[in-house]
Design a protein around this nucleic acid. Sequence first.
RNA 1: CGGGGUGUAGCGUAGCCCGGUUAUCGCGCCUCGUUUGGGACGAGGAGGUCGCAAGUUCGAAUCUUGCCACCCCGACCA
Length: 491
Amino acid sequence: MSSKGIVKRSEDFSKWYNELVLKADLAEHSDVRGCMIIKPYGYAIWEKIKDQLDLMFKETGHQNAYFPLLIPKSYLSKEAAHVEGFAKECAVVTHYRLKNSEDGSGVVVDPAAKLEEELIIRPTSETIIWNTYKKWIQSYRDLPILVNQWANVVRWEMRTRLFLRTSEFLWQEGHTAHATKSEAIEETEQMLDVYANFVENFMAVPVVKGVKSENERFAGAEETYCIEALMQDGKALQAGTSHFLGQNFAKAFDVTFADKEGKKNHVWATSWGVSTRLMGALIMTHSDDKGLILPPKLSPIQIVIVPIYKNEEQLNIISEYAHKLKKELSELNISVKFDNDDNKKPGWKFAEYEMKGVPLRITVGPRDMENKTVELARRDNLTKSTVSQDGLPKLLLDSLNKIQEELFSKASLFLNENTFQVDSIDQMNQVLNNKGGFVEAFWNGDSKSEQKIKDLTKATIRCIPLQGSEKGNCVLTGEPNSKKVIFARAY
RNA sequence: CGGGGUGUAGCGUAGCCCGGUUAUCGCGCCUCGUUUGGGACGAGGAGGUCGCAAGUUCGAAUCUUGCCACCCCGACCA
């Protein structure tokens, strides 16, 4: 039966990923091309991500607001680089009404209901937000503005993949306005740190912090900071970006403020975002051939209790214990599911919760009740042990923390073992064609060289790392004094 | 946008080349019973505009033409 298991990673990583997303009940394809339905279990993980990030944004002084989904077409064209970057993938609303078709077969667009000015479904909200900030900002006293919004955006991508690239996706976008350049840069860097902190400490996904090359920069940004993660198949995934927008949007939307001397200045801007793509990073970093592996901090269910019984009497005894344990664990803020569904056999449940990545499983049967023990199974390393019921809550709490740490260590080790130094294009191709990974090499800083390297290797510059300022000979041209960057094939 | 593929029950599929009773099988679902320490078993049952449209034919899931949709692989992007 097809519901059993998924294809092995080593056989077809891409297929493995797709099957995992479907079988772990995270999401499914909708009837609309490139759009996905995020199912309750997948959404519960996203909510965990969202809640934690939201907390961190608020701790750093940001407030949430909400701006419209629809943006007048003309707004988009006000910032030249921005429109250039996004025009190709915008969905456009042209009419506001349907009517019954003449032959009665359904509804058609009412040609009489054509909009004067077409509306774009936001691919990102810089334009409508800066058009709004213009009204909000007059004086230096109005600054900074530190606003975030949780929203959906639409980018009509050629090719889509569940979570990694969908036509519509969920994200947050922070948009801040500052009086000085240095303050804006500080904000940009601060939010990059927030992202890196979250991704490493909650998702247990190690990242490299850096800035993008000019080619890879966000449309309209002066500097794009990013965090880059490495997936199990050796491909890189951009996990978050934070942009220093300079005064580009302030100029495009004429947003100025009067400083203490009464002099008018353009406002400095940042924007930063992470999306449901993080779900893809989470999945592809930790999971195995049995299914999803979730870090405890983001797992909707942290512990599942599976009872084993031959009759109702036994079930009652186990249930009583399970409810007591569940209550004790709740007091430690551990989320527990007691799965007493009588329609599914234990073996089925074991496989199911492994597919769904629940970090810990407790099995309790008559034998255990007699010995005052439980069987404890770890999802991440698939080990099982029999442990005493005495002091169990504390042990479980410790185990969850341990799993969280070990997932991060394991992923960090993978990142380190799959980061290679090369000094020629041949070597680079060798590494990339073999197992992939991050490739450190020197680059002369020229966009043309970057493009040439991409043509030769299919690898792009993922980032110019913030740490380490070594210089060396350019991997393409041999020019000395070139800076060290990370290349990889990327999602 | 190029290349490949698929569309038959909730899901996965056989049948299509070579047209012919009532469209195959598995999972899932419903009922009853037995089961429950790694994806249980038996018996019975329900469920179908064969992607859409036109054509050929006595007869179309099957042949022809057109259309639509989605998936996968590339190039482009978070």
